[in-house]
Design a protein around this nucleic acid. Structure first.
Lengths: 263, 263
DNA sequence: CAGTGGTCTAGACCACACT
DNA sequence: GTGTGGTCTAGACCACTGC
């Protein structure tokens, strides 16, 4: 437990205004509490995998009832930022120690379940500093020419190269990332980002297309040129919707498929 | 308001057992209430677009507090089965009268927003009775050879044919569906299923691959043979996870992309 | 105005995990 | 046993809708 509470810690949240302002129109107490907890997460008061204070403790700290804290945590848990465990406490979500090894990878084998093929073999093709092109800069909310790290790697399942992807990261936030570091780390890349660079990916958006293999990708994936591949462009965001990664992947879909649940 | 309450209506839910049974281990009251409401939806006590009784009314009907009903409705709303509207009531979700025309269609134009291209032009290529093949039967939980309806259609945006899809439906549930009926109906196909056949699609799963245009699909989409296309196989479910539709679509992704949000 | 969902509280009790 | 989250209740009040 932190003995030096943050400035946000003991602030008494303002009671919701009576709706005289027009634009936000109304902001319930529990949303303000949610914001305060979010700040704690963003500022690293509690790190991925750690417990946050109990509901009662947060309630007295914020001068609200337990039920209000509960509703705030409910929303954060629904967004996968927190994980509740009955009898133990509420924990900051993490990409490590998750039952699902790749939370954001929706490619599953035709036969078997996600992960039934064992851990993917990852080969780092390259990892170098570069300057952001116009579209990379736009995706990462940088300016054209800003320093970025560019990684290319191949993922193989059961010995078959299945995914080749290029990853762009803002160099400022990922100083010291090397191919060796990437290759030697066991576990999800996003878990490495958490522990080594204090960057937690919270959500992502993907744009999916079909495109023919070309530009040397066909060799990396060992398919004929022109073979249709899934093109998956992903932008991953940290807290507060800050984009921190651009990823362009090409997936073979002859033995795997991209799975999506609609509701 | 129904003057003839269903059998489920006035049943007093059993208090949660103390966990002596092992497998379900525990079933909180609000989940039982959720089940009762779900039954009402499934049995058509309230139809898509209609209001359901107020929280207070349901609370007295089920002999629980308003808060318990509220939590049950919360979950149903989170699953998009119900829609809450402050000051008006809680409504059964519907595919018609939705701001989003195609809730399950994740294909969006490169330029503009979903729906910015106006309504899609739909051309029914064919609609005929057939016998379920082995894989169609498995997807629809039928037996091989059972009667199904098979529809093929093309969707065009701004005059460009973009999607060709084959749809399989259990013939028993969709008696009387014809190409004319499909062609003349304005609005989402799933809305037609609701009003005409009392089938409400609640969720769906998609398997996505990249594959080359062939088998005459290239002519329907006006692309060269071998052009990579997105292959989207969808199974749509009604209440209680009953599969009611198999859909195999091929999407052109030169001017559109499949959008997916991960969290 | 009355009726609806939405918020907030306070308190009781239960299920679960650790010790 | 103690502490955690999870459930259930009852009541007060607020915000929105429509009469």
């Amino acid at each position: 437990m932190s003995t030096t509470p943050l400035p946000t810690t003991d602030s008494t949240p303002a009671r919701p205004d009576t709706g005289t302002s027009l634009t936000p129109s109304f902001s319930p107490l529990y949303r303000q509490i949610k914001g305060l907890i979010l700040n704690g997460l963003r500022l690293g008061e509690w790190k991925p995998g750690e417990v946050i204070p109990s509901e009662m403790e947060l309630a007295t700290r914020f001068h609200v009832s337990q039920g209000t804290v509960r509703k705030a945590i409910d929303e954060l848990a629904a967004e996968n930022l927190l994980v509740r465990r009955q009898g133990k406490g509420t924990f900051v979500a993490t990409h490590a120690e998750q039952q699902v090894q790749f939370r954001f990878l929706k490619l599953v084998p035709d036969c078997g379940t996600p992960g039934s093929e064992g851990p993917a073999q990852r080969d780092i093709i390259e990892c170098r500093r570069a300057r952001a092109s116009a579209d990379v800069a736009r995706a990462l909310a940088l300016r054209t020419g800003d320093a970025v790290l560019q990684v290319r790697r191949v993922l193989s399942f059961l010995g078959t190269p299945t995914i080749v992807e290029d990853i762009w990261l803002p160099a400022v936030a990922f100083k010291g990332l090397t191919a060796e570091r990437l290759a030697s780390y066991q576990g999800p890349t996003y878990a490495l980002f958490e522990t080594e660079f204090n960057v937690r990916m919270v959500r992502a958006e993907e744009k999916i297309r079909a495109e023919p293999a070309s530009n040397g990708r066909e060799q990396l994936l060992k398919v004929a040129p022109g073979t249709p591949l899934l093109s998956v462009e992903r932008i991953a965001y940290t807290y507060k919707d800050v984009p921190m990664e651009l990823r362009r992947g090409l997936y073979r879909t002859d033995t795997h498929y991209y799975h999506n649940a609609l509701s």
